[in-house]
Design a protein around this nucleic acid. Sequence first.
DNA 1: GCCATAATACGATGCTCGTCGTAGAAGCGG
DNA 2: CCGCTTCTACGACGAGCATCGTATTATGGC
Lengths: 123, 123
Amino acid sequence: MPTETPAAGAASGARSLPHPDREDIRLAQVLHALADPMRLRIVCALAAAEGELNCADIELPVSKSTCTHHFRVLREHGVIQQFYRGTAKMNGLRRTDLDELFPGLIDGVLQAARLQERRLGAL
Amino acid sequence: MPTETPAAGAASGARSLPHPDREDIRLAQVLHALADPMRLRIVCALAAAEGELNCADIELPVSKSTCTHHFRVLREHGVIQQFYRGTAKMNGLRRTDLDELFPGLIDGVLQAARLQERRLGAL
DNA sequence: GCCATAATACGATGCTCGTCGTAGAAGCGG
DNA sequence: CCGCTTCTACGACGAGCATCGTATTATGGC
């Protein structure tokens, strides 16, 4: 269940990953987070995986530091959810939160991304 | 019909307003254009008006130059359509183009904006 | 205890963006 | 023709961002 609030339990380790509360998520911030090609790719991969994904499971043409940066932007803007599992950090879309706040938005963006990829790929 | 291609006719004056072709519109650019609070407000006003709106009909807490800048960003990223009518410049959403490229996206964003406004206003 | 793995933090750099003010251009009405 | 309204162009300034490399921290296994 990747849509629980991570506050419940504080998990195991000491490394904390601050997530915004659902009511603190702002549309403009979500759109900004989604407006970067790298982050859009991350979100699409996460949505396609339907579950959690390791940070390293998504291949991006950028350095590790930049990758970390993008994941953090997505998390701090309320788009994804992150937690540690051993040395790995797992990622998941905050679908239920986003769907409750902005019904149809994420689906629209994901479908738009798929359509555009198909359109440009089959050019 | 505010959704025609403005290339047909070249209108009256000499002032030209370059619009991107529909197939040149990119999702990331649209999201980026929508990610600014001012521009989001403009788009919402335009959608609510259902027709064309004068630039000055939308009150924004920024200077005139900044306003012009935002309108241009929206136009150059394919979100709105602009043309001159006398000294005024009229604006309209490119709904049909956007709906064809990214079905459901604009509706999702607009509804999300309305929901958030209601949520935050009734706080 | 110690090393390997995975990710972070920090600082730097170059680019983009949002904002503004002022000066200028295009059309309308007398 | 002249002034008024409306928008634009240009330049500037400060902030933010995407990117990187390197040093550091946290976890798990030997």
